[in-house]
């Protein structure tokens, strides 16, 4: 039963590009229904790891499974069970809200008769039932991001990957976005999220912090703050980043 509860299981996940090691022996588990924050500076190797977990790229070595499927040979099965929202905005600007939902739901294999009622319900709960016929291009960024998230969880995946989902929007919209994340987590969807905003790290159940391709620390935010004697997640992050920098360039 233990393995079912682990939605992601990574042991010594390593990815090398020629001589550059983007991910260096990452080991971590993500459990069902939790919100897992995957933190790290730009270039720390977060996106590389996410791409491997989504089945877009194969690791060089290590043992990795997502939703119970192996990332080397079962990428298509993994894709059936995950949702994905990237920092590069992923809805079609020249399609309407409704057309985007229908298209993505359709290619995830949802039957036509379930798509329409589920879409109407989702738009109503977001309070934007009237925007169904609007082109995505005409909507503000905050709405696009909320819709992209809704599309990513529309087929009820067991885990959803969010790669810097809240880049470039104001704090209120970010807060609203996190409400959606909580709601999805309450509905049993595991959330794997990367972010630059350390206040968002506090909202996660557990976080890992990556520095230079390695996971430096992992645990619930409260535990990490205590362990590293810091007042906020931001301080934890800075301490770890500085420590690594000092190791690299001894004065």
């Amino acid at each position: 039963m233990d393995s079912i509860e682990q939605v992601i299981r990574a042991r010594d996940l390593t990815k090398r590009f020629d001589s550059f090691t983007a991910n260096d022996r990452l080991s971590f588990d993500v459990y069902r229904g939790e919100i897992f924050g995957f933190l790290g500076a730009n270039g720390a190797g977060k996106t590389t790891a996410i791409r491997i977990l989504c089945g877009l790229s194969k690791p060089t070595s290590g043992e990795v499974s997502v939703a119970g499927y192996d990332v080397y040979h079962q990428t298509e099965q993994i894709k059936e069970h995950i949702g994905y929202m990237s920092q590069r905005f992923s809805l079609y600007e020249d399609l309407t809200v409704g057309e985007n939902f229908r298209f993505y739901a359709g290619i995830y294999g949802l039957p036509v008769r379930t798509i329409r009622p589920r879409m109407d319900e989702m738009l109503r709960s977001l309070g934007i039932g009237h925007l169904k016929g609007q082109l995505i291009a005409s909507l503000p960024l905050g709405w696009k991001q909320k819709l992209a998230f809704s599309v990513a969880v529309f087929h009820k995946p067991s885990i959803v990957f969010l790669d810097e989902p809240t880049g470039g929007v104001d704090p209120i919209t970010r807060r609203q976005f996190w409400e959606l994340i909580y709601e999805a987590a309450r509905g049993g969807i595991t959330v794997f999220v990367t972010t630059h905003y350390m206040d968002e790290a506090e909202y996660c159940d557990r976080v890992s912090i990556m520095v230079d391709g390695r996971i430096e620390t992992i645990g619930p935010p409260a535990f990490l703050k205590e362990k590293h004697q810091a007042a906020s997640m931001e301080q934890v992050f800075l301490k770890l980043a500085r420590k690594r920098q000092n190791e690299r360039e001894p004065q």
Binding site: E76, K79, I82, R88, S90, Y92, I107, G109
Partner: peptide, 17 residues
């Protein structure tokens, strides 16, 4: 260019489809 192909690639759509 728009990046939407990346989104398609994480769906279970097969190449031939």
């Amino acid at each position: 260019e728009k990046g939407t192909i990346e989104q398609i690639n994480v769906t279970p759509v097969r190449k031939y489809q």
